[in-house]
């Protein structure tokens, strides 16, 4: 039982950065913009959060810096992909390559430094619930933020006018524009939200998961988050499930080693990536479902007054 709780809690921790980034990307894609720059934005969030925390001594400042860095990166992307109507694939890739380079450059002087990262804070009462309490409510504050973000995104998409407008823009920007919606403004906001969440996801890595900075520390999580959104068919509740599933895959090697299995770490480290591909394969058996749920204008630039 104790082992199970520990494994589940570790799963939630490993899944949290994926959850944060994927929720942001979900909103972004629901507006019709595909931002492949997740990895770059996460890295910038990670390095900004770490450097800000190290210099200011405050984790709150670090988190704020990470979110701002993510937003700044996403605005660069929005300028290219939304304003200049550039190819979204190319612009997103550019953002990732730029983010990898810039983060390594900014963080070069901070490799090897260490900070006191977020520690766990048990929520009174809630953490006393058997099993779930220890797994979900005896975690660090950023995990709680991710849960709040999930509920907020879910409510926003399902039950608010704003969510409706966002979906309208993603499904049919022409019609949304005809109804007086500022399509480009909505898309900018959605991209910026995605950037902020990716920055936060990066901060989770450098401030909570492993409180330090190393080059390329996201190790493909930004890409996994992108796959996660597809896998979740653009539904927030499925994003949560998927994120924790990937979390489980990425800590499996620790569990197996704990159980005394003698498998090479390098081979086990492949698991999350293999699982991602398997998930995409699984999804392909039901193409109709994917087609039905994909925001119709996803990936297509919109020029008003064409």
């Amino acid at each position: 039982m104790e082992l199970l709780i520990n494994v589940l809690a570790a799963t939630v921790v490993a899944g949290t950065p994926l959850l944060l980034a994927a929720l942001g990307e979900l909103i972004c894609e629901r507006s019709g913009v595909l931002n492949l720059g997740q990895e770059g934005m996460m890295l910038m969030g990670a390095v900004a959060g770490f450097v800000a925390t190290l210099t200011s001594g405050s984790l709150v400042v670090g988190v704020a810096a990470a979110i701002l860095a993510g937003i700044a990166m996403s605005l660069l992307f929005a300028f290219m992909a939304v304003t200049l109507a550039a190819n979204q694939y190319a612009a997103g890739l550019a953002l990732t390559i730029f983010g990898i380079g810039l983060s390594a450059f900014v963080g070069a002087g901070f490799v090897g430094e260490s900070i006191d990262g977020f520690s766990r804070v048990a929520i009174p009462l809630l953490s006393d619930i058997p099993l779930i309490g220890r797994v979900l409510f005896d975690q660090d504050p950023l995990v709680y933020m991710s849960l709040v973000a999930f509920v907020a995104v879910w409510v926003f998409l399902r039950h608010t006018r704003g969510g409706l407008l966002l979906r309208a823009v993603g499904e049919d920007p022409e019609a949304a524009n005809a109804n007086g919606l500022k399509v480009l403004v909505v898309r900018y906001l959605a991209v910026a939200f995605g950037g902020g969440m990716a920055g936060l996801a990066g901060a989770y890595l450098s401030l909570a998961y492993t409180p330090m900075w190393t080059e390329n520390m996201t190790a493909g999580r930004g890409w996994i988050a992108l796959a996660l959104v597809v896998f979740a068919t653009w539904r927030p509740e499925r994003v949560v499930l998927g994120a924790y599933l990937f979390g489980a895959a990425s800590i499996l090697h620790l569990v197996l080693q704990g159980l005394g299995w003698n498998i090479s770490t390098e081979l086990l480290a492949m698991l999350p990536y293999v699982v991602t591909i398997l998930m995409l394969v699984l999804l392909s058996f039901n193409p109709a479902r994917t087609r039905l749920n994909t925001p119709l204008s996803l990936g297509q630039p919109y020029r008003p007054g064409r």
Binding site: L76, F79, M80, A94, L95, I97, G101, A104, G107, E215
Partner: peptide, 16 residues
């Protein structure tokens, strides 16, 4: 890391 930074900038400006 300035290598990666220059490469990223180059691609970025190119697409713009």
């Amino acid at each position: 890391a300035i290598t990666g930074l220059f490469q990223g900038l180059l691609l970025f400006y190119l697409l713009t």
